[in-house]
Amino acid sequence: MSIQDSRADMLARMRSRLGRNAAQDAEAAERVAAALRAPVPAPRPPLPADLTACFIERALSMQSTVARISVMHEVPQACADYLARTCLPPTAVVWPQIAALDWAGAGIEVVARAAQGEDLTGITGSFCALAETGTLVLCSGPDSPATVSLLPETHIAIVDASRILAGMEEAFALLRREAGGVPRSLNFVSGPSRTGDIEQTIVLGAHGPSRVHLVVVG
């Protein structure tokens, strides 16, 4: 048999094992369609009263660092403060989506593009954030390249407090509502990259950023 026949062969063997007749097969197709139309509810952990406080607490426990400011135009200065405090140069690659903020006013030299290997700091926005696990939700797109949160050693992310949601389910609902579905690359990021492969001892800084700093606005 040629490799083109593999699909037909695998499906045929599944069908013969499942042993359905034509009517039962139609029922199976309908079961699948129904489950896709209306997700089956599952147990959820209780919602925290204060989503922002919960998000910050969990993010800290995942070794992110957090700064809280009140309005968006303070973001560049908060980033500049963090870079100075961490002894990093005031340069960054940023999402085109946030390029219009007054970075020069805070003394940060930015380029808006996908990240390259040598970029030291990447600054991104976020689609939303999750209180349950202290997680950033990042969507790839022309104005939000995925590499900016991945290649640089330091990742700074802006989180709009009004978009801190309870958990993944709310993020998926928001994606369906605002974006009509999932982007090419949807990333849930919870703190700096790490590995536990050697002696099951977790150390920070594997292939992704070794520092994740969250600027929570509002």
Partner: peptide, 9 residues
């Protein structure tokens, strides 16, 4: 949660 949970589409 693991650090990176990615959905690629």
């Amino acid at each position: 949660i693991s650090n990176y949970v990615s959905l690629l589409t």
